[in-house]
Every structure is written in structure tokens, then in C-alpha cells.
């Protein structure tokens, strides 16, 4: 098994490189992705190696990045669109929701919307406004789209390739605060399917489910809880829409308690959906109601105070305490 250590940013870069090598129809398009390599350097060196026709520096217009990717998809190309930041995806929202999601249906299957929209999401990098948002639920609610998120370099490397090969349009959420964290990448074999939920750490008392940036937070919380005698099972949802519920159900049937964690506010959120599904599916196994740890229902705050908005280890542990306290 050939494994190597790299950052998530590098893993995405290598995954994109491999996709470009494998399929001549794969294109990358986005703002500043060529010479600069993207503001996060995810596409570093790719234009030099694959040319300006395949790694396309886009004029600054997000709707056009997605809208032209639709036309390219109709022509048989697979375009990976880079949205520079989460907060800049909204100009493209119309194309994503009105066209990308619906064109397969509208054409009775004649069109394959094989495109990926990469979205550096969630906060934690001390940026200014519009650079730290969690818009995943907007897309999760739209039939025709799929939404996934990676939390490790190995997943980043493989999931981006799997997303590009997939025939449905995929919103690919990258936790930008984890771009520079290193991990082992297995270059030979994908660890999981693209839409599979994974148990990251086994436990017996409480199931804690997250995705993207919150996984690291949850794992830290699990370490701390263990020292206090509470065993947390950590689940990485990975697929945000659709949810892969079976592994969550198995876990909650075992633990009887669960907590969801994401940076987005909880109103009509992925956490809310998980709570609803698990309550319905695991009703007789539950020893406490599911609790959501999330951002607050306010505009994302100035980042000097963002760590009081984003779920912290303490807030996860507090939620764990609350579900543990429901013992009857």
C-alpha cells in the first residue's frame, strides 16, 4: 500500500491532477486558478501542466462559471468549477438550482450534468465577511443535486476524483480551515464510496455526527470525554445529501444517544434532518433526544469572535453531557 503524508490542499491538488490525467474531458474552471493556483493553491501548477484550455482562468462571474460548465456538460465535458469562497457562490445559485439541478429531468435524461462545484466552506481562518459560511443546506434541499464534504486528506484525494467521475452534479464542500492539516493518503485505493458515511472512532455511550471542519473538533471532544469515562462514537457523514443513514442508525441503536455538529445554523439544517431521521428510525433505542450543536441564527460574526460562533470542543462536550443527563 503506497501511502504518503500530505495536506488536504495538496491531496485535492493531486486528486485533480489525476482526474485531468485520466480523462481528457475533465476541465477546471475558476477565478485565479491558473498562474496563481487559486487563492488556496488547490490548483497549483495544473494550468502549467495541462494548459489554459483545460485549466481555465475565468472572468470574475460565478454565475458564468457554473452556467458555462452546464453548456460544456451538454457538449460532453466534465468541468470542476471552483467557487473562490462559500460566500461567493450565491451569484451562481440561480444556475445551480434552476439549471444544474433540473436539466437532466427537463431533458428526460438526454443531458448528463456531470459537473462538480468545489466550495471552500465553513469558517475558522480569521477572514473578513463572506469567507466563512456554511451554505450546504441550501443545496441539500434541492432535488437533482448531491452534496458531499471531505474531512481528511485521504478523503479529499479520493472524493474529488469520485465526484468528477460521477454522473450527477455534486456540490463538493471543502473545510478550508483544514486545508493545511496533514494526513496519510493511500494513492492506490479509495477508502470508501463517495456517498458512504464512516465511523471515525468507535464508542459506546454517545454518537456524535459531523462533517467537514467539525470532525477534528469532535475527535478532540471524544479524547477529552474518554478521560472522563464517556465513550463517544464519532461519525463522519461525508455525504450531506443524500445522507447515508444506515451507519448512523446502527451506531445510535448501540449508543442510544446522539449529537450532531456543524457550523451552519440549525434551523432547517443537516443536523435537523439527521435528528428527524434518527428519531424516526431509532425511536425505541433512544435514551435521550438528539441535540444539535451548530452556529447561531445570525449572520456569520466578525472573525475575532468566530470561535464563539463555531462549535467548539466545549460546546460538543456540553451537548454530550446533556444527552448523558437524560438517563432514566
Amino acid at each position: 500500500m503506497a501511502t504518503t503524508t500530505m495536506t488536504m490542499a495538496k491531496a485535492l491538488n493531486e486528486g485533480l491532477r489525476r482526474a485531468l490525467e485520466k480523462d481528457k474531458k475533465v476541465l477546471l474552471m475558476g477565478e485565479d486558478i491558473g498562474k496563481l493556483g487559486g487563492v488556496f493553491r488547490i490548483t497549483d501548477g495544473l494550468q502549467k501542466d495541462f494548459g489554459e484550455d483545460r485549466v481555465i482562468d475565468a472572468p470574475l462571474a460565478e454565475s458564468a462559471i457554473v452556467g458555462t460548465a452546464v453548456g460544456l456538460a451538454i457538449r460532453g465535458y466534465r468541468t470542476v468549477c471552483e467557487m473562490q469562497f462559500d460566500g461567493f457562490v450565491y451569484p451562481a445559485f440561480d444556475q445551480i438550482v434552476s439549471q444544474v439541478a433540473k436539466l437532466r429531468k427537463r431533458s428526460d435524461g438526454a443531458y448528463t450534468m456531470g459537473l462538480v462545484i468545489r466550495l471552500p466552506f465553513q469558517g475558522g481562518i480569521g477572514a473578513i465577511e463572506h469567507h466563512s459560511e456554511s451554505p450546504e443546506a441550501y443545496f441539500a434541499q434541492t432535488g437533482g443535486l448531491r452534496v458531499v464534504s471531505c474531512s481528511t486528506p485521504n478523503d479529499a484525494y479520493w472524493m474529488i476524483q469520485q465526484a468528477i467521475e460521477h454522473d450527477d452534479p455534486i456540490i463538493f464542500c471543502e473545510p478550508k480551515s483544514r486545508y493545511w492539516e496533514k494526513g496519510e493518503v493511500d494513492l492506490d485505493q479509495a477508502p470508501h464510496g463517495l456517498f458512504e458515511t464512516v465511523v471515525r472512532r468507535e464508542g459506546s455511550d454517545v454518537t456524535v455526527i459531523g462533517y467537514g471542519s467539525t470532525l477534528k473538533t469532535i475527535l478532540r471532544a471524544a479524547d477529552t470525554a474518554a478521560t472522563e469515562g464517556v465513550s463517544i462514537e464519532v461519525i463522519d457523514a461525508r455525504s450531506i445529501s443524500p445522507l447515508d443513514l444506515d451507519p448512523m442508525v446502527r451506531s445510535v441503536e448501540k449508543t442510544g444517544r446522539f449529537v450532531t455538529v456543524h457550523e451552519a445554523p440549525h434551523m432547517a439544517s443537516i443536523g435537523s434532518e439527521i435528528v428527524a431521521e434518527l428519531t424516526q428510525r431509532c425511536f425505541y433505542s433512544l435514551r435521550a433526544p438528539g441535540i444539535r450543536v451548530s452556529g447561531y441564527h445570525v449572520p456569520y460574526p466578525p472573525t475575532r469572535i468566530e470561535e464563539d460562533y463555531r462549535p467548539t470542543v466545549d460546546r460538543v462536550l456540553d451537548a454530550v453531557d446533556r444527552v448523558m443527563g437524560f438517563e432514566n
Binding site: L27, D53, S63, A64, V66, G67, T68, A69, V70, G71, L72, A73, I74, R75, G76, Y77, T79, D94, Q95, S98, Q99, L103, R106, S107, Y111
Partner: peptide, 23 residues
């Protein structure tokens, strides 16, 4: 292409398609 009801969306699809023709 199929009818586009949201005004202007299709202009971008056409440009993308044209970029495919170029490639």
C-alpha cells in the same frame, strides 16, 4: 436545447457549449 424559462440562463449554456466546440 430544452426551453429555458428563467431569463438569460441559456445564454451561458450556449457560451459553454461554444467553448466545448472550440476544444
Amino acid at each position: 436545447s430544452v426551453p429555458t424559462i428563467v431569463l438569460g440562463n441559456q445564454a451561458l449554456h450556449a457560451v459553454g457549449y461554444a467553448m466545448g466546440i472550440q476544444r
